[in-house]
C-alpha cells in the first residue's frame, strides 16, 4: 500500500540506456521503464505507469530492487519468487498485473543488450 500511495522511482531516467513500454491488452495497464547501465549493472531505474494498485506498486518495488543489480541477475528474476517476495497473495489474474513491470524490465534489458551488440 505504501508503494501504491507513494511510489518510488516515478519518472524517467535522463539519458537512459534503454526504454520500454509494456502494455497489458486485457486491462489497458501501461508501464514505461527506463534504465541506466554502468559496468554491467543497473545504476538507475524509473517507471511511469497507469494501472491498478498492484501493477503500480510492483513497478515501484521492482525499480527499488534492481538498482545496483547486475544485468544478468535482473534478466533472470524468477517470476514465482518475485511474486512471493511481494508478500501479498494474488489470484492468477492479479499476478499478471504484478508481472507487468518484470516483463517490461526484462524487455528493457534485452533491448539494451541488443543495442550494445550491434555497436
Amino acid at each position: 500500500m505504501d508503494h501504491y500511495r507513494n511510489p518510488h522511482n516515478y519518472g524517467i531516467v535522463q539519458n537512459a540506456a534503454s526504454k520500454i513500454i509494456e502494455y497489458n491488452p486485457v486491462c489497458g495497464d501501461t508501464i514505461q521503464i527506463t534504465i541506466r547501465v554502468e559496468n554491467g549493472k543497473i545504476s538507475d531505474a524509473k517507471f511511469i505507469g497507469r494501472g491498478c494498485s498492484i501493477s503500480q506498486a510492483s513497478a515501484s518495488i521492482l525499480t527499488d530492487m534492481v538498482k545496483g543489480m547486475p544485468l544478468e541477475e535482473a534478466k533472470n528474476i524468477d517470476e514465482d519468487k518475485y511474486i512471493k517476495s511481494l508478500g501479498i497473495t494474488l489470484g492468477p489474474s492479479r499476478e499478471k498485473c504484478a508481472l507487468l513491470a518484470v516483463n517490461a524490465l526484462k524487455k528493457c534489458i534485452k533491448d539494451y543488450q541488443k543495442g550494445e551488440e550491434s555497436k
Partner: peptide
C-alpha cells in the same frame, strides 16, 4: 483514468501520476 498517451511519455512533465482509482482495484 485516461489512457497513457505514448507521445506524452517522451517528456517527464507530460505525465502526472493518476489520482484515480483503477477499476480493477474497485472491483476487487
Amino acid at each position: 483514468m485516461s489512457p497513457l498517451n505514448i507521445n506524452d511519455l517522451a517528456h517527464e512533465e507530460g505525465v502526472q501520476m493518476s489520482q484515480a482509482i483503477h477499476p480493477h482495484d474497485v472491483s476487487e
